[in-house]
């Protein structure tokens, strides 16, 4: 049990780290939103799943309820976070921000 919990937590931490590096290193606004949006869904899912399993060490009604509440958090985050990313990209497109291309053109 503990091994699964540790594996899930490390998996989530790895994705958080990769996402943080991605936000720093990506070249422009839209591609930076890509890791920022991924982080909130996958890494949060993995970490909360690990925490919920850890919480189920002793299975009683109380711990099961707490685990269900944790999964509710994941559910709402995974609904709200991609929508927020979508809306930010939408706002960028409407404001006329051009996306990054490899060739450096003038203007």
């Amino acid at each position: 049990m503990n091994i699964i919990v540790i594996a899930l937590l490390v998996f989530g931490l790895f994705f958080f780290l990769a996402g943080a590096i991605g936000i720093m290193r990506m070249p422009d606004f839209y591609s930076r939103l890509h890791p920022a949006g991924k982080l909130d869904t996958l890494a949060t899912l993995a970490m909360v799943m690990g925490l919920a399993l850890y919480n189920l060490n002793q299975i009683t009604l109380g711990t099961i309820l707490v685990s269900i509440k944790m999964f509710l958090i994941v559910f709402f985050v995974s609904l709200a976070s991609p929508t927020a990313t979508h809306t930010i990209v939408d706002a960028g497109m409407r404001a006329g921000l051009r996306h990054w291309t490899k060739k450096k053109k003038r203007g």
Partner: peptide, 8 residues
């Protein structure tokens, strides 16, 4: 936006 409306 349809996505925003539905999720909200």
């Amino acid at each position: 936006d349809l996505i925003n409306k539905t999720v909200c």
